[in-house]
Lab assay of single mutants.
Amino acid sequence: MAAGGDHGSPDSYRSPLASRYASPEMCFVFSDRYKFRTWRQLWLWLAEAEQTLGLPITDEQIQEMKSNLENIDFKMAAEEEKRLRHDVMAHVHTFGHCCPKAAGIIHLGATSCYVGDNTDLIILRNALDLLLPKLARVISRLADFAKERASLPTLGFTHFQPAQLTTVGKRCCLWIQDLCMDLQNLKRVRDDLRFRGVKGTTGTQASFLQLFEGDDHKVEQLDKMVTEKAGFKRAFIITGQTYTRKVDIEVLSVLASLGASVHKICTDIRLLANLKEMEEPFEKQQIGSSAMPYKRNPMRSERCCSLARHLMTLVMDPLQTASVQWFERTLDDSANRRICLAEAFLTADTILNTLQNISEGLVVYPKVIERRIRQELPFMATENIIMAMVKAGGSRQDCHEKIRVLSQQAASVVKQEGGDNDLIERIQVDAYFSPIHSQLDHLLDPSSFTGRASQQVQRFLEEEVYPLLKPYESVMKVKAELCL
């Protein structure tokens, strides 16, 4: 049975990233139509530049190519590739079939990587351009969430054990800070992308030097003109047959890092959902379990974690691919890159769409948070109580021993009897502590235990987050809708 299948058929496997999760716009960027249309555009740009620099290419040939950029006979191309065992030459023939007058000058002087690699770089750039505003929107939604809850005390956790208090907004800023680093890295790697350009079979530009009869300047002009037509500021000066596969490492490393950030955020949300302090959106008709109707599973956060793990592992592909590119190139890269580049971007696209949807509907339960604080705060307040007693004339050592005994009794009630923490009640009825009984409410005010959390939130948002989001103001209103 021949390899390949009808990918629109229910009898043929289709990647869930495309069929179930990723956005239509990201799927289109990695589609065959987008790819092969870009090949034709690159052939047109090459012909236009070659004509401008004096090669015998007519206006009629150029116009014929322009008129057929979208006229792609995919069936013919597939048949040609089956016959020739070469995808680029299959599309040269297919393009030439609908451009008979231009057929002889299509791909003039070029090698397969002229269309293959340059198209990949265009796709990487455009895919990054799709991700950047999506990530900015996630940051914006979380920034709104953090600002609104900047002063809401909550129990902090280290080692997932109760620690000092923080605020809900401050905790959210930990998430935002990681995503801001990801946004900066995505922008950097996007701006650092260079075009492969017009380089020939081993990167020496020998074929173009021959076409222009040894004119170095025209060869350099050709490279520059096509690079500018493709919208790049610069091209690699040095290439082998391909652009260095280190570029793929750079791009997928940034995406993998984004995956790590999203995994951490969504894990926190899942843990908070278990504590009943916070939940992701839950639709009115949504079913959490087929057997347990009360369940409210954090399905979206779980999906993000599941896909983020996949995204983090994909960076190993370009690392290994770059390491086995012998001399000017081997074909070890080809099949692998067809999979890992598309999957990385479709996965990143999915987790950003999902995280935006989550961040637009996060639900906080202040009463649950308050109750958990009441359970733990008495123990945390013991040092403040000791200091207040010393100020009232008591002995630190005597007070410490009193607190120690009462704390152990209260802990026994919590752990052995399943009761509430009654340390404060014990202190309130103990005559030894009568000098500070009137101060206990103040000493137990949760806001006095959150330090500068709310001020940190305000400063972080104003100095770091809002300036970073400013270039994306025009796209901030787009909502994230999930079908599944």
Results as ranks from 00 to 15, higher is better:
Ala2Ser: 12
Ala2Trp: 04
Ala2His: 05
Ala3Cys: 13
Ala3Arg: 15
Gly5Trp: 11
Asp6Pro: 12
Asp6Val: 13
His7Asn: 14
Gly8Cys: 13
Ser9Glu: 13
Pro10Gly: 09
Ser12Cys: 11
Ser12Leu: 07
Ser12Asp: 01
Arg14Ser: 12
Arg14Gly: 00
Tyr21Thr: 13
Ala22Lys: 12
Ala22Phe: 06
Ala22Pro: 10
Ser23Gln: 12
Pro24Phe: 12
Met26Tyr: 05
Met26Val: 08
Met26Leu: 08
Val29Asn: 15
Ser31Met: 00
Arg33Asp: 12
Tyr34Phe: 13
Lys35Asn: 11
Lys35Arg: 03
Arg40Met: 15
Arg40Pro: 13
Arg40Gly: 12
Gln41Lys: 10
Leu42Tyr: 08
Leu44Ala: 13
Trp45Gly: 10
Ala47Trp: 02
Glu48Met: 08
Glu50Met: 09
Gln51Gly: 06
Thr52Pro: 04
Leu53His: 05
Pro56Thr: 13
Ile57Phe: 12
Ile57Gln: 10
Thr58Val: 03
Gln61Glu: 06
Gln61Val: 04
Leu69Cys: 15
Glu70Val: 13
Asn71Gln: 13
Ile72Gln: 11
Ala78His: 06
Ala78Ile: 02
Glu81Leu: 02
Glu81Ser: 00
Arg83Pro: 08
Leu84Glu: 10
Asp87Gln: 09
Asp87Ala: 11
Val88Thr: 10
Ala90Cys: 11
Ala90Pro: 10
Ala90Val: 09
Val92Gly: 13
His93Pro: 01
Phe95Gly: 01
Gly96Asp: 03
Gly96Val: 05
His97Gly: 02
His97Ile: 01
Cys99Thr: 13
Gly104Lys: 02
Leu108Trp: 08
Thr111Leu: 05
Ser112Gln: 03
Cys113Tyr: 00
Tyr114Ala: 01
Asn118Ala: 13
Asp120Leu: 06
Asn126Lys: 10
Ala127Lys: 10
Ala127Ile: 06
Leu128Ser: 14
Leu130Gly: 04
Leu130Trp: 08
Leu131Gly: 05
Leu142Arg: 07
Ala146Tyr: 11
Glu148Ala: 01
Glu148His: 07
Arg149Thr: 06
Ser151Gly: 07
Thr154Cys: 06
Gly156Met: 02
Phe160His: 10
Gln164Gly: 03
Leu165Met: 00
Lys170Glu: 04
Cys172Phe: 00
Cys173Glu: 03
Leu179Arg: 03
Cys180Phe: 12
Met181Leu: 05
Asn185Glu: 05
Leu186His: 08
Leu186Asn: 13
Lys187Cys: 09
Leu193Ala: 06
Arg194Asn: 09
Phe195Leu: 04
Arg196Ile: 02
Gly197Pro: 14
Val198Thr: 12
Thr202Val: 04
Thr202His: 02
Gln205Ile: 03
Gln205Glu: 13
Ser207Val: 01
Leu211Ser: 07
Phe212Ile: 00
Asp215Leu: 07
Asp216Ile: 02
Asp216Gln: 02
His217Ser: 05
Val219Ser: 02
Glu220Ala: 09
Gln221Pro: 00
Ala230Thr: 12
Lys233Val: 10
Ala235Ile: 02
Phe236Thr: 08
Phe236Arg: 10
Phe236Trp: 05
Thr239Gly: 06
Thr239Tyr: 08
Gly240Ala: 02
Gln241Gly: 09
Tyr243Lys: 15
Tyr243Ala: 04
Lys246Ala: 14
Asp248Arg: 09
Glu250Val: 03
Leu252Asp: 04
Val254Pro: 00
Leu255Asn: 14
Val262Ala: 08
Val262Phe: 13
Lys264Trp: 04
Ile269His: 00
Arg270Phe: 01
Arg270Lys: 04
Arg270Met: 04
Leu272Tyr: 12
Met278Ile: 13
Glu279Tyr: 12
Glu279Gln: 03
Lys284His: 03
Ile287Asn: 09
Ser290Trp: 11
Met292His: 13
Pro293Ala: 12
Pro293Met: 03
Lys295His: 03
Arg296Phe: 08
Asn297Arg: 10
Pro298Gln: 05
Met299Arg: 11
Arg300Ser: 00
Glu302Trp: 02
Arg303Ala: 05
Arg309Cys: 11
Arg309Gly: 06
Thr313Gln: 05
Leu314Lys: 07
Asp317Phe: 10
Asp317Arg: 06
Leu319Trp: 10
Gln320Ile: 00
Thr321Cys: 01
Ala322Leu: 14
Ala322Thr: 01
Val324Lys: 02
Gln325Arg: 02
Phe327Met: 09
Asp333Pro: 15
Asp333Ile: 15
Asn336Leu: 05
Asn336Ala: 11
Arg337Met: 05
Ala342Arg: 11
Glu343Asp: 05
Ala344Pro: 02
Ala344Ile: 03
Ala344Asp: 07
Phe345Val: 10
Leu346Lys: 04
Thr347Gln: 00
Ala348Asn: 13
Ala348Gln: 08
Asp349His: 04
Leu352Asn: 00
Leu352Cys: 07
Thr354Val: 13
Thr354Ile: 00
Gln356Lys: 07
Asn357Ile: 01
Gly361Trp: 08
Leu362Val: 09
Val363Pro: 12
Val364Pro: 00
Tyr365Cys: 10
Tyr365Ser: 01
Val368Ala: 02
Arg371Phe: 13
Gln375His: 02
Glu376Arg: 12
Glu376Ala: 04
Phe379Lys: 11
Asn384Arg: 10
Asn384Asp: 13
Met387Asp: 00
Lys391Ala: 14
Gly393Leu: 03
Ser395Asp: 12
Cys399Met: 08
Cys399Trp: 07
Glu401Thr: 15
Ile403Phe: 15
Val405Ser: 02
Gln408Met: 12
Gln409Met: 03
Ala410Trp: 14
Ala410Glu: 02
Val413Lys: 15
Val413Asn: 15
Val413Phe: 01
Gly418Cys: 14
Gly419Thr: 15
Leu423Val: 04
Ile424His: 15
Glu425Ile: 02
Arg426Pro: 06
Ile427Leu: 04
Gln428His: 15
Ala431Gln: 14
Tyr432Arg: 12
Phe433Asp: 12
Ser434Asn: 05
Ile436Gly: 11
His442Cys: 14
His442Phe: 14
Ala453Gln: 07
Gln455Arg: 13
Gln456Asp: 06
Val457Arg: 15
Gln458Phe: 01
Gln458Arg: 07
Leu461Thr: 05
Glu463Leu: 13
Glu464Gln: 14
Val465Glu: 00
Tyr466Ser: 11
Tyr466Glu: 00
Pro467Phe: 00
Leu468Arg: 04
Leu468Ser: 14
Leu469Asn: 12
Tyr472Thr: 07
Glu473Ile: 05
Ser474Leu: 01
Val475Ala: 13
Val475Gln: 10
Val475His: 14
Met476Pro: 14
Lys479Trp: 10
Glu481Val: 07
Glu481Tyr: 15
Leu482Gln: 15
